[in-house]
């Protein structure tokens, strides 16, 4: 069996997807985990609550793993039948990997917000719901990344093992992946705002609405990335067919 360049590039795409997202999730979980350790050293009964917050930034790694699995399955890696896949298919996989892998760095922002959630909920248990919501705000960027990755794989037909995508389209899709993936870093700023939003809401419960508005402002830049990615997909003719 000959392994073509396309199959190798697909493997690299899967690696970028899961690796990038795992770095983001790892750092995010690390940030909230250290805050959680501090909380339970003083109040061990808060372990369950701290565990929920620690689990929140893990989702990005799951999205990365999901795209990696979809790529590997489409390429026949899971059945041991990866063979002579055309190069453009591999490049599309790299684009999808970049979209979800880079957007996975949003977990860092989520970790910053969740750390504030742990600390404030330890003091005020009624802050649990609000802390979780503020932490969930920063996941939107990862969802945009996952969306573009899925759209790339589905609209090019790769998910249904149709490998007829052309080289210019494939290279263009790397641009779409970079647009939404790099814009995902805006979640770090959003996480910082959300962290302060949690503290503000703990101090004054009426501040939740306006704090969410401040938090949503960082998301605008992620929407720019998403829009550009969708326009690239449109420009490459993927929505027309």
């Amino acid at each position: 069996m000959t392994i073509g360049t396309g199959a190798v590039l697909m493997a690299i795409g899967a690696g970028i997807a899961v690796g990038g997202a795992a770095i983001g999730s790892g750092i995010g979980v690390g940030i909230v985990g250290s805050a959680a350790s501090g909380v339970i050293s003083e109040r061990s009964e808060k372990f369950g609550m701290a565990l929920v917050f620690t689990a929140i930034p893990q989702t990005q790694a799951i999205y990365g793993l999901l795209i990696a699995i979809l790529i590997l399955q489409a390429g026949g890696f899971l059945g041991g039948t990866a063979g002579d896949i055309p190069t453009p298919v591999g490049i599309v996989a790299i684009g999808a990997g970049l979209a979800v892998g880079l957007a996975g760095f949003s977990a860092i922002g989520q970790g910053i917000a969740a750390a504030s959630g742990v600390a404030n909920t330890a003091e005020k248990p009624e802050m649990f719901g609000k802390g979780v919501v503020f932490s969930a705000v920063c996941e939107t960027q990862a969802i945009y990344g996952l969306l573009i990755a899925v759209l790339m794989l589905a609209l090019t037909g790769i998910l249904s093992s149709d490998f007829s995508v052309e080289m210019p389209v494939a290279i263009g899709l790397v641009g779409a992946g970079l647009a939404v993936g790099l814009a995902g870093f805006s979640a770090i700023g959003q996480g910082i705002t959300c962290s302060s939003g949690i503290a503000a809401t703990a101090r004054n419960p009426g501040a939740i609405g306006r704090s969410l508005v401040f938090a949503a402002m960082s998301e605008t830049f992620a929407i720019f990335g998403l829009l550009v990615a969708i326009l690239i997909l449109f420009g490459l003719g993927l929505f027309s067919g």
Binding site: T140, L147, T220, I223, L226
Partner: peptide, 11 residues
């Protein structure tokens, strides 16, 4: 952003 946010249902 609010509208696209519902894509998380798919995600």
């Amino acid at each position: 952003g609010d509208w696209l946010s519902y894509v998380r249902i798919l995600a």
